[in-house]
Design a protein around this nucleic acid. Structure first.
Lengths: 228, 228
DNA sequence: CCAATGCTTCGGCCGCCACCGAAGTGTGGT
DNA sequence: ACCACACTTCGGTGGCGGCCGAAGCATTGG
């Protein structure tokens, strides 16, 4: 039925701290860029690149190139199941192991290079789509006339930014759900900072929604709780 | 939430061909002595001992000492579940074939402890199943009434061997197929030796099919080429 | 165009670990 | 008592592979 060599090969790929860290970071189905996975694993970009290539070649991950980024995600539910099964055993293992803590702040809201991501980013994107201000067609997003109007009055000079990477989606946080990237995404992020709706954690990419932000996100976007 | 170090540790233990072989041999919940596991993994007793100690310390296996033997078995259903999950991924992996050099003699035919394995072992098992003489149900195999008759007339005293490890299957590492183990498997091997259908390579577990064996395997089992 | 950024490839270093020979411990059989 | 057998421990060797520095594409933005 199955051979031990194949099993050892797969398990061996997981059995390396750097790769295990990357796989676990992707464990919930998100797609993350290579650089970020390198940070998760605490190795340099070169090392991570090699690991990711192995994982993809073995069929554990698949990658999508988006601009100069390369997003990786778990290839199939089978792989996720396997990871969970290993985690169960690892948790029951008598060997105490150091725990790598995942910052819950990062999951709530963060910047993805220069636009909003995390639950907050998804919430903003959803709100814009629901309000008919943005229309998503695959990887490309369009700002509708009402959207242009809205952004303008909100304080974003949309006029000058009709350029190529205008508005697009980013496959990222919270599986298969988009958030806005591109020029519009960046502008929104910048405007949120200007308005002091969010503030950055020092030394981290996590963002915190301020009290003013809570009100602002609710009034302008209809987001209650500001994605928290 | 979960710790990557623990995961890597567990997966790393499985990610070694020798250990993976042992774990898979124990995958059905049987308890096997260290020596047999060493044979399964095709390493010396010392090496196997070290591996087994690691697996036990990590909580994947537990051992019972019985006389001068030491029987190992899977520590918990969680571990078995994990192994199956890895096997599923390994089966779907685009790299199914072994990249490890396999001794062609061993692949053709060999003994697995004391029964036939390799292509010859698989061919014999297949032939018996095809002829309705053996029925395989998962890891357990049953000899049908016709099978009893056949073995008897072939020269195997089946009458006295209704004991516990009667007839079971063993997963072959090089062929990824089942072959017969247990008392019946051992008896078949012994009978083949008696009939001089096979002879052992000196100093190896490889077996060679003699000219008489070629005829015999074809006439009795319908195996042409005797699995070569 | 050029500079910045993200990722990949190449080359060499170094540590870990699987492996086996030899010797040691414990159990069973005679 | 003796030997045979199953397993373990120890020590030394060799190879595999993870790691990073440096350099090489590719994309984006100015």
């Amino acid at each position: 039925m199955s051979n031990a060599l194949g099993v050892a090969e797969i398990a061996g790929l997981v059995g390396e701290p750097a790769r295990a860290n990357m796989l676990l970071a992707l464990g919930d189905g998100r797609a993350l860029p290579a650089g970020e996975l390198a940070a998760c694993a605490e190795v340099t970009a070169q090392t991570a690149s090699g690991h990711l290539a192995q994982l993809e070649q073995a069929g554990l991950l698949i990658s999508i190139r988006q601009g100069r980024h390369r997003y990786y995600r778990i290839a199939s539910p089978d792989v996720a199941t396997m990871l969970e099964a290993v985690m169960v055993v690892a948790a029951r293992s008598p060997r105490p192991a150091a725990r790598l803590r995942i910052d819950p702040d990062l999951q709530r809201g963060r910047t993805c290079y220069n636009h909003l991501a995390g639950r907050l980013g998804v919430a903003v994107c959803d709100a814009l789509v629901r309000a008919g201000r943005v229309a998503i067609d695959g990887e490309v997003a369009h700002v509708t006339p009402e959207g242009l109007n809205f952004l303008q009055t909100w304080g974003i000079p949309v006029a000058g930014m009709r350029k190529h990477p205008y508005c697009r989606t980013c496959i990222d946080w919270s599986e298969r759900r988009h958030h806005l990237a591109g020029a519009v995404g960046i502008a929104i992020h910048r405007r949120c900072l200007e308005l002091q709706w969010i503030e950055h954690h020092l030394d981290s990419r996590a963002v915190r929604v301020t009290r003013a932000g809570r009100q602002g996100f609710e009034r302008a976007f209809g987001i209650v709780g500001a994605g928290l």
